[in-house]
Amino acid sequence: MTMNPDLVAPSREPRQGDVSALDTDRNPGHAEAPVPTVVHPGLTGPIKIKAEDVSVFYGQKQALFDVSLDIADKAVTAFIGPSGCGKSTFLRCINRMNDTIPSARVVGKITIDGQDITDRSIDPVLLRARVGMVFQKPNPFPKSIFENVAYGPKIHGLTANKTELADRVEHSLKRAGLWKEVADRLESPGTGLSGGQQQRLVIARAIAVEPEVILMDEPCSALDPIATARIEELIDELREEYCIVIVTHSMAQAARVSQRTAFFHLGQLIEVGPTEDIFQNPRERRTLDYITGRFG
């Protein structure tokens, strides 16, 4: 397993929680060990992200309880579950967005390509360049469409000159299926687009820095069905290149876009497996109750 040298950098944002005590008995090369199929069924490809006993506390309140989960590369993994079940909390651990909440404390270990990203030495800024995120509400910057997409490459210094930058912006917008709609108005404000377009703009912004993982936190909950369908198509296309993790309230959406589904309830990971199995043949009673609409 190769360590990405980019990720090992002095941390500017020290983590609140200390995991060293919990990690003493763990083997750093653990990610290479064969995956026990009983715990992590439905893996369709090589493991990209591996979470071990991740718990999250907001002050005194524990929001996530010992979640262990493997996430495959070049596939879509969906997190489902009722509101407040911890699925978004877990998602935000993967790019360490929880660091920005002063009261949040993350315990446990998450590795990407075998590298522990919860480690103090990992710079969250670098991590977030590798792990892109799309939020529930489209949040383009109040700048032009071009500036929105160019922002990531600019701050990370990914392009040498203006032509390269323009090429990258065009490529990202094309990849997000937005190019045709905005090609002639790149200088108009990103906030002037429709909700669905804004969400695709945000996706273009995320892929402009060439991340390895894209996290999506209910990306379609503010969109109409047509815009939703457009985003779902896009997710399906992007799956070939990226490891995508999507949190959704819509079970139909999870069934449509994901290959693997994890069901969370009350801060616990109840069940994870191939999407078909979860929806047609769940092992757990609670999963069945949830997908049949008996609670949630």
């Binding site: 967005m97 800024v125 670098l126 360049a129 892109g132 910057f141 990531g152 995320a206 820095v209």
Partner: peptide
């Protein structure tokens, strides 16, 4: 959040 998630410091 958008800026931080893009990897801005």
């Amino acid at each position: 959040e958008a800026a931080l998630a893009m990897g801005a410091s």
